[in-house]
Design a protein around this nucleic acid. Sequence first.
DNA 1: AGTATCTGTCTTGTATAGAGTACATGCGTC
DNA 2: GACGCATGTACTCTATACAAGACAGATACT
Lengths: 267, 267
Amino acid sequence: MQDGNALAVRPDAGLDEDRASGSREKGLNRVLQILEFLHTTQRAIGIGDLAKAVNAPRSTTYTLVRSLVDAGLLEMAGDGNRVYFGKKLYLYGMDYVRGNDLLRRGRQEVDNLSRETGETSELCMLQSGRYTIVHSSPGTRPFRISSATGLQIPLPWTASGRLLLAGFERAVIEDMVSEDDLVLPDGRRLLLDDFIEDIAVAGGVGYCVTSGLVDAYTKCLAAPVFSAPGKVEATICLVVPIDTSGEKTDDLIAMLRERAARLSITG
Amino acid sequence: MQDGNALAVRPDAGLDEDRASGSREKGLNRVLQILEFLHTTQRAIGIGDLAKAVNAPRSTTYTLVRSLVDAGLLEMAGDGNRVYFGKKLYLYGMDYVRGNDLLRRGRQEVDNLSRETGETSELCMLQSGRYTIVHSSPGTRPFRISSATGLQIPLPWTASGRLLLAGFERAVIEDMVSEDDLVLPDGRRLLLDDFIEDIAVAGGVGYCVTSGLVDAYTKCLAAPVFSAPGKVEATICLVVPIDTSGEKTDDLIAMLRERAARLSITG
DNA sequence: AGTATCTGTCTTGTATAGAGTACATGCGTC
DNA sequence: GACGCATGTACTCTATACAAGACAGATACT
């Protein structure tokens, strides 16, 4: 069926589906871009600016925003003519939590962990092929080691990333991880093979520790939460100072693994 | 399927913009319907059934769902070929909470109230013209008087409804409230004029009590939260047994009003 | 007053997204 | 193994949603 029956030579068929975000984009896609943009900027924005930001025509943006505001997914922010997320999204989000035992219990457990250990603790998941901090609890240290909830970070930068990818085919991993993802914030470059090796090791031993990857002062301890035997659904992790003693680290890892096991669904 | 495909005389073009959800609906609208449907059913559903439920063509539904799943707004639910809300919606919802002081503090206050009083407590807001329970905390009574978060109830059935509409024009109120909304669950019928009178009174005294409206066994105490002088942004309310003594009721109202005032933005 | 740059609404043409339909596959049940 | 009834994908046609641009009002600075 694929064979081009006639014309339609698609002169531009080169780039797969990256679409230069050019003309005549589908309305739904524009909306998805808008939501994603608001998520990354974390602030209300004027409609005109929004149009520029997502590279959409102004007129289109006005009609889409109007629809979304009417539906309650967006709200006009207090001061004037800016928009941000609306109550409906909060309600839908609560529905998600209610329907999702793991998230509900995971949040709880992460809050407990950070209270008991005093360290920053996080619940992490894969979110359409990206590493995502789903919930994070700050810890009590004077210097804060915190990352915003919903932040997306390249998989190779994290201990959790190594656990979340356990059990995936090499090919799948390869196209989840871009070249850029392998370059650490300090400019060092990981080798894909090393990363894949890490994943295998992490999957084998059932935990993972990384030191000084995202920044030079912290290490990250992570343990996997299973939704079925062999299937890593999430991780919980602790972010601790890089000079934490080996002994203390071991204790924390043991604790983490115990909690993670408790969260797992033991098929 | 529906009617004669022939000339399509648009026999349904009567109703203003209610659109009989007929043919060639905009993709975004279909998506909004899908989300709303999932919110009301609170469970995962197969794509075929979803198509029927929102009265959309199957092929269209498949493509829309695929987009939404790719974007992470929906997820394929564990067991097989069903969809429900996805992580992205949770993240967006958390963004909303973060950007919204009132909601954050209001949740807290409602949780406190129900712990301290032992009664069911709720935070309520207008949500695109409908009364919505935004957050609810169960209370400790053996018989539970609880309504799910996100539930939408006709405005005239509630004490909060009377407060939330304070300050609106009569005309605005009239078209927020449908005929059906004036019929209580037990079949009794309110008069629109009485309701509007109630609103004026509630706005004047700064609280509202209704007895036996939603059911015969409870009364509802509510106090307004202001986002600006005169502008009611939300209410907090307590649901108590209808035979609660006058004295105790008065105490609870005083407490409620104090908390509500604390939540208000004193312009 | 004059110019510049916003915002929000409206109209018009056409590229295209959605509807319809067909088909392949899977899974029951008789 | 023939039938009914699901799911998921692929195709073609056309009604229409999107883009472009004009417009009126606001605000601001010269």
